[in-house]
């Protein structure tokens, strides 16, 4: 059932229960995201996609990537409050990963020169979980996972030993917005690659992964799906 709602004042019709981000796309509104990907189930961890909504006369802050639309909902994607929240998130992530170029670019776009917060030991993983979810939901092998909690949380293979289920497809490397998973040639088997988690910074996307409709990315995943389907059938 389609329901009407407004995105920044613009009326759109969309299936009831669809995430707000889909409606926003329809209306041409751009909502920044870091942990969202069309091919994956929403995760809601980066909080960058927050929007303000009004339903039943109540104003609320919700994440656009997973909050379901309702008829009559009013959505605001670019308010002062939201700009403040997005700045905070980027500043916090920049303190965590000072050397990640995609974050630096986002910060620049938002007018952040440097993070006020204490810089941490350099890591390049923002814990968006894209790699883990892609490996589980699309590739279907769950070679990597998010382990530990709190400040010790990290992406790792089980027990941090070389994974024996990883098929070396490279999806995790590709989808990672910060380039912190590396693919290296397998020395033992020529033409094969192995996945390595390290500090290497890859940056294959010219738009630094900021545009969700990135054609290259989409095609890559379409191809990837076919390859994986074939791989499974063989």
């Amino acid at each position: 059932m389609k329901v009407p709602l407004t995105i920044d004042g613009q009326m759109v019709q969309i299936d009831s229960g669809a995430p707000i981000i889909d409606a926003a796309k329809k209306a041409g509104a751009v909502i920044p995201t870091l942990c969202y990907h069309e091919a994956l189930k929403p995760y809601g961890s980066c909080r960058l996609c927050m929007v303000e909504i009004i339903i039943n006369k109540q104003r609320r802050l919700v994440t656009a990537c997973n909050f379901p639309v309702e008829g009559g909902m009013e959505v605001f994607t670019d308010t002062a409050k939201l700009r403040h929240i997005r700045k905070m998130i980027i500043e916090l992530l920049l303190a965590r990963c000072p050397d990640v170029s995609s974050l630096r670019a986002m910060a620049k776009q938002m007018g952040i020169k440097s993070s006020r917060f204490k810089k941490q030991d350099s890591t390049e993983c923002i814990l968006c979980g894209l790699c883990v979810r892609f490996c589980e939901e699309v590739v279907g092998v769950s070679a990597i996972g998010l382990v530990n909690r709190g400040i010790d949380r990290e992406v790792a293979t089980p027990f941090k030993v070389a994974s024996d289920v990883c098929i070396g497809c490279g999806s995790c490397t590709y989808i990672c917005p910060t380039g912190c998973i590396e693919m290296v040639p397998d020395k033992k088997i020529p033409q094969m690659r192995i996945m390595k988690m390290g500090q290497h910074s890859l940056n294959p996307c010219i738009n630094e992964f900021q545009c969700e409709t990135c054609i290259v990315e989409k095609e890559f995943f379409e191809d990837m799906r076919l390859v994986i389907a074939e791989f499974r059938n063989s």
Partner: peptide, 12 residues
């Protein structure tokens, strides 16, 4: 130490 570490505001 008890936060699950999933989301940015809480963890960072």
């Amino acid at each position: 130490f008890e936060s699950c570490g999933k989301c940015v505001p809480c963890r960072e």
